[in-house]
Each structure stands twice: as structure tokens, then as C-alpha cells.
Design a protein around this nucleic acid. Sequence first.
DNA 1: ATGAAAGCGCTAACAA
DNA 2: TTGTTAGCGCTTTCAT
Lengths: 336, 336
Amino acid sequence: MRKKVTLKQLAKELNLSISTVSKSLKNDPEISQKTINRVHELANFYNYKPNALAVSLKSNKTKTIGIILPEILNHFFAKALFGIEQEASKRGYKIVTCITNESYKKEVEYVEMLNYSSVDGFIVALSQETQVLNKFDHYQVLNRDNVPVVMFDRVSDEIDCDKVVVDDKEASKNAIQYLIDTGCTRIAMITTIGDLSVAKLRLEGVKEVTDNNEKVSLIELSVKDADTFENKIENFLKNNDIDAVLGLDETAAAVTINMSLKLGYKIPSDISVIGFTDGLLSKHSYPKLTTVSQHAEDLGARAAQILVNQLDDLTENHKTKTEVIKTSLIVRDSTN
Amino acid sequence: MRKKVTLKQLAKELNLSISTVSKSLKNDPEISQKTINRVHELANFYNYKPNALAVSLKSNKTKTIGIILPEILNHFFAKALFGIEQEASKRGYKIVTCITNESYKKEVEYVEMLNYSSVDGFIVALSQETQVLNKFDHYQVLNRDNVPVVMFDRVSDEIDCDKVVVDDKEASKNAIQYLIDTGCTRIAMITTIGDLSVAKLRLEGVKEVTDNNEKVSLIELSVKDADTFENKIENFLKNNDIDAVLGLDETAAAVTINMSLKLGYKIPSDISVIGFTDGLLSKHSYPKLTTVSQHAEDLGARAAQILVNQLDDLTENHKTKTEVIKTSLIVRDSTN
DNA sequence: ATGAAAGCGCTAACAA
DNA sequence: TTGTTAGCGCTTTCAT
């Protein structure tokens, strides 16, 4: 099949030993300049590149990071992946990407598979099912094996590792407060991602504000089945007297806008809408969505940075920390 | 750092030779059942898994596919990646994903990097810059090294390898014909991706229909700068008397819908709109976009299938072929 | 200044 | 039935 030039072949052709060739390629000062030149010349000629596998086997480093993502069709994770890839490749690391499709079983499989010397470390966002089941043995194994893991966004307190999260609670507090400040009092909170840790945090933030405000009423709608999102939201909008919606995820907000349009409600004069995740839908809705940006790219990049720092560093005992990325409210046209 | 159980350690602990242990784990019939059992027991106890690197070095196979994508924030490629990942993992392959960001230089770097024994084969969609520059030496190298490559969507005639493409020309012919059949005569074609091979094909298809139809007029708008998309399209819509728009990419179509709404045009009664790529934007626009589905997931899955077949097969001389995935027009609410 | 040899973890042909 | 050995391609210590 594939036949690549090896040190052996170069050595033979140059009448040198393998080790001399190896050293020459590294410009080892103990080799004569003349030999170094000869070696480089032939290596260039054959476009020699060391076999990454052999180097990895020897060094016990693969310069590869395993990425475990619950989804890729979700813009948030796509952006995060982009951030990770950029940062990793800048630092000389490859990434191998696995998509769990929100399944616990696949997550376990992937982690095990990658743990067998294919990757130096992991960047993980937990799958929905894993968060529901609350089972994390597969990460304990990594811990025991001393394999660095950085989790982002979808994390768990029960795993001891570095984490990068978004300040979801603070974000939703700000969003709600913004709605209140712009005159809304009958606020609905719509979510399609009820089970996730992030949704819970966002909800907490919302409650914290509305519970302490007599003038504001809060109604919740949690929809699960993707097929009936639209109808449910449409009915909800029709049957409830509200003047604002906070969508806990991008889809919820986008659908809210469209259903409002359909029902003839004016946005934002009749209903203000704020969403989460500054993705394509937010930018290309009409009117454009006011949204909480989680800076997904930064999140990914930061996760990669932390992991690579740990990988390249020789720091032995390392205290795990959780870093919080600030969100920002991007005010566009769906709010007053 | 990471310390994993190896055959050596198992062998020592069991007072057996390494090769006996190795064979036992494979249930080699030449080993006694008793020994096999003992070995399995201890291996399970330690949760032994063979070191993938060593196996790869030995077998000259990595069970890994390199994926070169121009972009990941584009829903089309995200879906394709999803399809690839599903298929690959089903067949026991990992994927390592590299994103060129439409840059020729990064594409070359990534291909070279992965070619050094990290992957068994490639799945590639060319970057925009590569298509413009028309430079493909990095793939000739793979050809010479006998490394299987499957290209999809963004392909080039100048590279001899298996390809999976969408029938872009046919697709746009169908789309235009649909507009004509539903009574449109003054059709605009809007694109934001003028340089790409696919855009050229789509344009050809359009022309083929309109050139032969006296009753239909065609106007083209090609916008490049993402920052001014919306204004340009808005002005265009304002200043041209048209009754239909074919967006050659999803963004063009989505923006057309929004700007029409803004200008007070009714869709589809005033203007019919058809887009390409059945992504999030098409599903969550209002009204919902009639769109050409390229079946990106199928495309990706098929590419993976072809590659893996080739990888797993021992077929020596293999004739390269180009497979065409049929598109379909998904009729929703933006057309009559 | 150059080379021999061991070893990373595994497989497999060959010996015993 | 089990073990010895060589080798995948590379690095590195220790001769020469």
C-alpha cells in the first residue's frame, strides 16, 4: 500500500547508520556539518517526514486532542468546535472529533476508544443522556490514568477536571432584566432543552429576578418533541396574554418570532423576544433577534488553550479550576 | 504520565510469554482453553486494551480517516460531517477533522500533516482558494503514495479520485423550472458564492432553462462582501421588477425573504423564493423556504462509505468514479 | 564524528 | 501448547 521513505532507507542510501541520520535531521551538533548537509539534501529530495505513529509510540505523545461533542448540527457546538480547531492547530495539535448524538452509550464508547493512546487529552461537552443518567465512570477512568480533560458548557460537578462554562445564570438574569427595563411585565419563558444543566441554570437566573419582582409575571413553556414545537408555541402565544418571550435556546426564540408573525403580532411592539446562542438563526430572522451571545468560539478556544497548556507544561500537581466566560446581550431588533 | 497495562505486564504477572498472552486475547485455538481463560480474566481485571499506536505501527493501518473541510459554520458542511462521522464510526473508523477556513495554505498543511501515517485515507471538500488557484499538487502526492481520497461537493476535474457530488446543474434547472411553472417570469438569481465550482454549475443550469425561454427574463446579482449582503439585496429588490428569486446559497435566499418582508413585499404572492441547502435557515424562516435539498448527510455518508469500502477491500486496481447524488426540491411556503 | 543497541507495544513466523 | 525472535520506525544512551 503506502510506502514512505524511512530513516532506514535514507541511511542505506547514504551509507550511514540510522542513528546518524536521525541526529542529522535534528541538526545535532555532534554530527559534522558535511554529513548534516548530505542528509538534509536527500531527505528533502525524498520529501522525508518522520512517521508520526512511530514518534508517538516512542514519546508517548500523539499531539492529538479528542473532542467529544453531543451534536454538530447545533450552531453553538459548531462554533465551539471551530474555536477549538483554530487554537489547537495553532499550537500544533490535531483534533479527532466524535459526535455522541446526545447518547450516553456512544459517549462511553468514544471515550474508551480514544483513550487507548490515540489522544493526549480530551475536550468534552456532555451528552444530554449522560447528564440525565448522571453516570460518569468513563471520566473517572481518565482521571485515574492521568489523562487531562477539559469540559465546556455541558459540565458536571461530579467530575473533577478543568471546566470552561458560560455564566448562564447571570446571562438570563441580564436578559430578563433587559426585558423588564424595556417595559415588559408579562413574560414567558420557552425552552426546548429542559433537561440540560445549562437550561436549569438559565431558569434559576430568570426566577431569581422575577420572584423578587411583584410587578412581573412569569409563565413557562417547556416543549420536547421537535415535531410539535411550532404548534405548541403558536398555541401558547395565542392563548396567553404576554408581552415578552425569553427563549432558552435559539430554536425556541426563532420559532417564537415566526409564530408571532404568523399570528399577526408585531415584534417588538406587541411582543419582545430574546434568545440564547448568537447563531445563524438570530442573525437571519426578521426582525433580527436580540440574543445572549455565549461567545462559543471563545469558549472552545479557551478550552483548547487550557488543555494544551496543561499538555505542553510539565506541571505535576495541578489544581482544577472552572473558568467562566462572560456572556453579552446583543441587542438587535426584537426588543424595544 | 499515563500508564496503561501492556501485554508485557500481563505476561509477567501470569508467568507467560508476551506472545502467548497476545494469542490468548485473540482466542487463538493453538492456546489451551485454560490459559485463554486465565489471560482474559486478568485482562478484564486490568481493563486491558491494546495500544492503538503500536497496532497501527505494526499493521500500517490507523483506522482513521482524515477529513478536510473548508468550513464548519456552514450548515451544509456540518451536515456532511455528521453523515461522515456516523458512517465512519459505524464501520469502526475514527475521523480527524481539519478546517481550512477556505485557505489553500492551510489545506496543504493539513493534507501533509495527516499524510504522515496518521490516516488511512481522506475525505475532502476543496477550499475556495484552492479552487480559485487551481493548484492540486498536494493531492498528486497522495495519489503517488497510493492513499485513497474521496472528494465531495467541492471537487476538481484535475484530480483523479473518487468523487461524490450533487447534481447542481440539474437541481437549479428544476428549481427555475418550478418557478416558471408556478407563473414566474421575471426571475432574479442571487449568489454570495460566485467563485465556487458549485455556483458555476448552478448558474449553468439556470441559463440553460432561461436562454431557451423567450417569456422569461433573468437578472443576476452576485454579492461578495458579507457585511453588505443585506443592503445590496434590499436595494436590488427595491430597484428591480421581479416576481421570483433563486438564491444560489442558503444565505442569499434567507436574506431575500427578510428584505422582502422589510420592504413590505408579500411572499410568495409578490415574490417567490427558492434557496439551496436545506439547513436551519430554510426551516426557520417565515414563510418557510422552498429549497433544494442536497442531502448533505447522505453525501457525507456516501463519501465515507466509498472510502471505507476501498480501505477495507483489497481490490488492487480500482477505477475512479464520480457518483452523483440526486437533489430534491422541498416545496414549502415561499413559492406559489 | 559515527554507530550499535535497546526499547516503545504489538504481531507473527518459527522453534521448541 | 508455549516461547523466542524479529521487526514496524523512531529516539537516545552508550560505545567506538
